[in-house]
Amino acid sequence: MNPQPPASTCYRHPDRTTGLACTRCGRAACTECLRPAAVGQHCVDCLAQGRTDIRPVTPTAPASTARSVPYVTYVLIAINVAVFAVTASQAHSIADNHLSRLFFDWVLEPPAVAHGQWGRVVGAGFLHYGPLHLAVNMFALYILGRDTEAVLGRARFLAVYLTSLLGGSAAVMLLATHTATAGASGAIYGLFGAMTVILLRLRQSPTQMLILIVINLIISVSLPGISLWGHLGGLLAGTLAACGILFLPQWLHARTRESVVRTGWAAVAGIAVVALALIGVGAAALS
């Protein structure tokens, strides 16, 4: 079956606009016509075909399988691991990699950003304090990233991830000005929020995801050295970005595929701009 580009309306309900699509056949479908799958979501027709299809399995994977590979998630993990390897090499220590020159140049220190070192607001999201910090965050990114990327698509997933990262940096710049913050946690908390929005859009219970968020926030409060504000900022930015993609076009009664896509991208861009503006406000207050 060759995937078709998503339309602006559900293929079974032409009167319903949607920003979602079956990750198997690619057809646009509303939440009533989609069911959660191991990767993404499948339409009811694909599910029925899967139950009745008795053709022998061939070694060649269908095109839809390749389409669902979470390449962006894997690339993000690879970049984080590569940056950690550089810091460990420079510091000549895996445990004390924060003593490296790259770590010194990229860690999010609000006063340094106020003096013009804006690269820290993004670079800090790819630094980690030791192998345990890296392993925990990369495991979370692997688990959350696969499904979030499958539903949102590669470009929108990357946009939500980076917007969440900026949201975490903005919260640190405004509310944790005397800290040195590093880690992908802000962006990962954004994926927690995005996955919760996805479950709501698919009319699935978000209870388990909400419990995970609460548990992680309790850990953030209980353990020293964890950036609570960075986590909360990333969570808020990722949640809002996912709402902008999955709900805002419906709220604004977008009727065409182009308007649905344009509205979603405009929402994500707007949140990113607000995060950058708040970073600027924080920097101005410190300068």
Rank of each mutant, 00 (worst) to 15 (best):
L132S: 12
L200V: 14
C243V: 15
D96M: 11
I77G: 05
L278F: 08
I54W: 11
D147F: 04
T23P: 04
T148Q: 03
A63Q: 14
A29E: 00
E32S: 13
P56I: 08
S227Q: 07
T65S: 15
R156Q: 12
V57K: 12
T23K: 05
L212E: 10
L278G: 02
A37I: 03
S220Q: 06
H98W: 15
V273S: 09
F247N: 09
I218F: 04
A159E: 06
N97W: 02
Q204A: 10
P111W: 03
G116K: 09
A61T: 11
T73E: 03
T17I: 03
L286C: 06
M138P: 03
R55M: 11
A28Y: 00
P6C: 00
L212W: 12
R203V: 09
H231F: 06
T58Q: 14
A184E: 07
V86K: 07
A85W: 02
I215H: 07
G230Q: 01
S169T: 02
Q250I: 13
R12K: 13
A61N: 12
Q208Y: 14
T65R: 15
V136I: 10
L217D: 03
Q204M: 12
A242C: 08
A88Q: 00
V75H: 07
L108P: 01
P131T: 07
G167W: 01
L166T: 01
T9I: 08
A266T: 13
Q208V: 15
G244Q: 01
A135L: 13
A114W: 01
C33V: 05
A269M: 10
I198P: 00
R262E: 12
F126L: 08
S227P: 05
R154N: 15
V260T: 06
G270F: 03
T148W: 06
L134E: 00
G190H: 02
D105H: 11
V197Y: 04
G225W: 00
Y142I: 12
I94R: 12
L217S: 03
V197C: 08
G230C: 01
G193N: 02
L252R: 12
I211P: 03
A180M: 07
Q204G: 08
R51I: 10
A37C: 07
V69P: 00
S169Q: 06
S205G: 06
T177K: 13
T31P: 08
A182F: 01
G145A: 01
G264M: 02
H115N: 12
A124Y: 08
A85Q: 04
V83G: 00
A182K: 01
H133Y: 13
S220A: 13
G186P: 03
L132K: 10
L134I: 05
G225T: 04
Q41K: 12
G264E: 02
Q49W: 13
S89H: 14
I218M: 07
A7H: 09
P224V: 09
R255T: 14
L191E: 02
Q41A: 15
N216W: 08
G282S: 02
T207D: 09
P56A: 07
A7M: 11
R101C: 09
R156A: 10
L236M: 12
P131C: 06
I198G: 01
A135P: 04
T52M: 13
I279P: 00
L200D: 05
A194H: 02
G119N: 11
G190V: 06
Y129P: 08
P3C: 07
A269T: 13
A159Y: 05
A48P: 05
G123T: 04
A267F: 03
L152M: 07
T65E: 15
L223G: 05
